[in-house]
């Protein structure tokens, strides 16, 4: 048994803690995300507002908790969709081979050629700003990443002796895929999903920050940070905490992915 990695533990705690906060936001948030208290505008951290308040007197902690909901919902949904589509295409290309694989992987190369944020911006330029477009944009970005990551290991598996043995004994391709190929890819899938979530969170927050993501009145951490710049000199607290929340969300998944990678691949 190898010694446990403290970073993996930190990552797991961060991810679970923040996911729990996102899920429980409506019950644990002290105020509604849009509840205004005009008399308590731009307050710093205090007993009534643990993380202070913004220029409308809205509670920063409550807005961050609801912001986590938006951030996690969009990032998780789009990365899982990308895993399904991209991972599926990658494994299909590996198992089938031939011209189909060439066409699929060339298409992936083309998508992969776009810088991440630019591809996301291009998708949003076509679909218009909003939460759904942001989700689709992030999904499109990660499809080629999953296809490329899973194709290599799936190719190796296809050539493996026990797969050949299964095939020789008359097991159907579907059964081989389900029984032998997919379970063996689970480690790589976990690592890549976790690392992708880490960057997808940053992409979502960047797009919101640029005004291309979730539109008002839905609470969004990136837009909170962008709006807080208008009163930054008067009160930096909203900027400090909303940015820190984005960092912690991304950091948790990255530590988790990094730790899992070490566990599955001791060489790294």
């Amino acid at each position: 048994m190898r010694r446990s990695n403290p970073l993996l533990v930190i990552g797991l705690v961060l991810v679970l803690g923040q996911a729990l906060m996102a899920v429980l936001a409506p019950w644990i948030a002290p105020y509604g995300p849009d509840a205004q208290d005009i008399l308590a505008r731009l307050h710093g951290p205090e007993a009534a507002h643990w993380l202070g308040s913004d220029n409308f007197g809205r509670d920063t902690l409550s807005r961050i908790l609801f912001g986590y909901r938006t951030l996690f919902a969009i990032s998780v949904a789009s990365v899982l969709a990308a895993l399904g589509v991209g991972g599926g295409l990658g494994v299909l290309a590996a198992m089938r081979g031939g011209w189909l694989a060439v066409v699929v992987m060339r298409c992936m190369d083309v998508l992969f050629a776009f810088p991440i944020i630019l591809l996301a911006i291009a998708v949003i330029a076509v679909l218009g700003p909003g939460a759904v477009s942001t989700g689709i944009a992030i999904g499109v970005v990660y499809v080629p990443i999953f296809a490329r990551t899973l194709r290599g290991p799936a190719l190796l598996l296809r050539e493996a002796d026990y797969i050949a043995a299964a095939r020789a004994s008359g097991t159907t391709e579907m059964k081989i895929l389900w029984r032998h190929v997919l379970p063996n890819l689970s480690g790589i899938v976990l690592v890549q999903t976790s690392l992708s979530l880490s960057t997808a969170i940053l992409v979502e927050a960047s797009l919101s920050f640029l005004g291309l993501g979730t539109q008002p009145p839905t609470a969004s951490l990136g837009r909170m940070l962008a709006e807080s710049r208008n009163f930054l000199v008067l009160s930096p607290w909203v900027a400090v905490f909303s940015g820190a929340a984005i960092l912690l969300a991304s950091l948790g998944f990255n530590l988790l992915g990094d730790g899992l990678q070490e566990r599955f691949d001791p060489r790294a």
Partner: peptide
């Protein structure tokens, strides 16, 4: 460092 959002770092 990897996960530090550049727009947050810039704002700070």
């Amino acid at each position: 460092g990897l996960t530090l959002p550049s727009f947050w770092l810039g704002t700070m």
